[in-house]
Computed example of a mutant assay.
Amino acid sequence: MNALEAVRARQSWSKVTDEAPSRDELLKLVAAAGRVADHSSLRPWRLIELRGSDREVLAAAIAKAEGDKSPSSKPLRAPLLIAVVASYRKSDKVPRWEQEAVASGVAHMLSLLLDEAGWGVLWRTGRYTRAKAVAKAHGIGKNEELLGWLYVGGKPAGKKPGRRRPVDARALVTRMPQPKKK
Rank of each mutant, 00 (worst) to 15 (best):
A37Y: 08
D68L: 12
E145P: 05
L4E: 14
W119V: 02
I82H: 07
S91H: 11
S12L: 09
R55P: 02
K182T: 15
G52D: 03
W123I: 04
L80M: 12
T125V: 14
A137M: 07
K64Y: 06
G148K: 00
S41L: 15
E98S: 04
S70Q: 12
A59M: 03
R165L: 15
W149G: 08
L147C: 00
E66W: 05
E5Q: 15
V167G: 13
A83L: 05
P156L: 13
A59D: 08
S111M: 07
G154F: 02
W13A: 04
I82F: 11
R10Y: 04
D115Y: 10
I62C: 01
K180G: 15
V85P: 05
D54Q: 09
K181W: 12
K132Y: 08
V84H: 05
Q99H: 07
G162S: 14
K136E: 14
I62W: 08
R124H: 01
L122P: 03
D24T: 11
R165Y: 04
L112Y: 10
W45I: 10
E25V: 00
R77K: 15
R170E: 14
S53L: 00
D24H: 02
K155V: 10
L4R: 15
G126W: 04
P79R: 01
K90I: 06
M109F: 11
R77G: 06
R164T: 06
P161C: 02
R55W: 00
K181S: 14
L80H: 03
P179L: 14
L146Q: 06
R46N: 10
D92V: 14
V106K: 04
R51K: 00
A9C: 01
A31H: 05
R43H: 10
E100S: 11
A83E: 00
H138K: 05
A137D: 00
W13Y: 06
A133T: 08
K181M: 14
V30S: 07
I140D: 10
A32L: 15
A61Q: 03
A131L: 03
R23G: 12
A86T: 05
S22E: 09
